[in-house]
Design a binder for these strands. Structure first.
Lengths: 222, 222
DNA sequence: CGGCTGCTTGAATAGAGTCAATAAACGTGG
DNA sequence: CCACGTTTATTGACTCTATTCAAGCAGCCG
């Protein structure tokens, strides 16, 4: 079932749009390769990135239920994607209780991650938002590529990291510096390495949600 | 189908717990009457309220996918609830594509609302967080009780509103004062009335997500 | 070797938090 | 019905931290 959804792959260039703000989004995308960001301009004019998508993610699960999406969805790197028209979602619901449950689970997971981000976004200490960003990104990437161990390449500019964490680009730079000085991370260009992951975890009380999944309630069969 | 889920109602007293942090949550709750808050203590020790539930909400949709919930779920008022064991979710997935889709839609809606909150939480202007809180709450309550028009009773203390918006209790008081001075709202005790709803909307670029739902992709039948 | 973009650093500003003191509202029991 | 104590709300003074503006510094590509 899932395989049938991923028949036709498609390449997308960096900077291309998968969806534009205030338009109807009538398909989902399954991201096979690359990073995607959802951006949104806020009333004050500042750009925000509510979500960053990584390989394996289903893009648009929080948008298809609405007549128009509030987000602009952009390829942050070169991509490989599979399109997933909305009617196919209807088919899935009709035909496969298990895959339906998986979609529901995905949505729940996204919500849990966003909850964690929401809490941290409300603290004043900005560098902790960066810490959570790094930890969540690492966890997510490890899911698909366990061999990454303790480091990853972040294709986003510091300005974009700021938009994703709610900091100004300037402050992202300062926060990285602080983490370097505390010997919590190392960095070479856009590679980040965790020098002291337990230390980072305890700073924000981080829990890897992927490690505490319980999907025993999913129906068996296809 | 849905009716069968709501057979046995149950009363819960204010202050009672529906779930405790770091325990397994193996049932959902359908909230019939009253307000419920999910609370969480953050690393620094400050209390946060990531979600406030209102009549009609399904409580715990972001928690059942995990072996333990990060949230403590508390009755903010006297409640009427229906329990919804996790196995029943499995039944729903197996038996009713449409209700499965509805659950998925609910989860998507929650996500969209949280996205809006996340964006606003990242701005510095605190009184705007309060504005969004009021607007989202009003929209949500109107869903079930359209006759409310432009006012509602908020059973939460200002300290709790602060925990829900990411402000200190003190600052909630100041922000309310500011909105009163701008003639955007009126207030009598814990009743809030919108004196200028368009004005409030434009402050935060508010969009009522409930009014832009598109559920045409839900399968027909039960 | 320019010219671009992205990163770093400094100084000044603005806004939210904290602490603390008061005032108002609410509930309880006499 | 009133007096008391507790909780909740308001206000002021001060601190701390992220932002903004601005200038300088890489690093990359043509």
């Amino acid at each position: 079932m899932l395989a049938s959804l991923e028949k036709e792959q498609e390449e997308v260039s960096e900077g291309d749009f998968l969806a534009k703000e205030n338009t109807r989004l009538d398909e989902l995308f399954i991201l096979k390769k690359g990073w995607v960001i959802a951006t949104r301009e806020e009333a004050s004019g500042r750009a925000h990135i509510p979500t960053v998508y990584h390989p394996g993610d289903v893009i648009g699960l929080s948008d298809v239920a609405f007549t128009h999406t509030p987000n602009t969805i952009v390829a942050a790197t070169q991509l490989t994607i599979c399109r997933f028209p909305r009617e196919k979602l209807t088919d899935v619901l009709r035909q496969s209780p298990r895959v339906s449950g998986l979609f529901l689970a995905l949505s729940m997971i996204d919500q849990a991650l966003m909850n964690d981000r929401l809490i941290v976004s409300r603290r004043t200490d900005g560098y902790l938002r960066l810490v959570l960003f790094l930890l969540q990104t690492m966890s997510r990437l490890r899911l698909m590529e366990p061999r990454l161990h303790d480091q990853f390449y972040c294709p986003l500019t510091q300005e974009q990291i700021g938009a994703a964490t709610g900091l100004s680009g300037v402050h992202v730079s300062r926060s990285i510096k602080k983490l370097l000085e505390l010997n919590l991370i190392e960095r070479h260009k856009r590679f980040f390495r965790f020098a002291d992951e337990p230390g980072l975890n305890s700073l924000v009380g981080y829990v890897d949600r992927y490690e505490s999944l319980d999907l025993s309630w999913l129906p068996e069969g296809d």
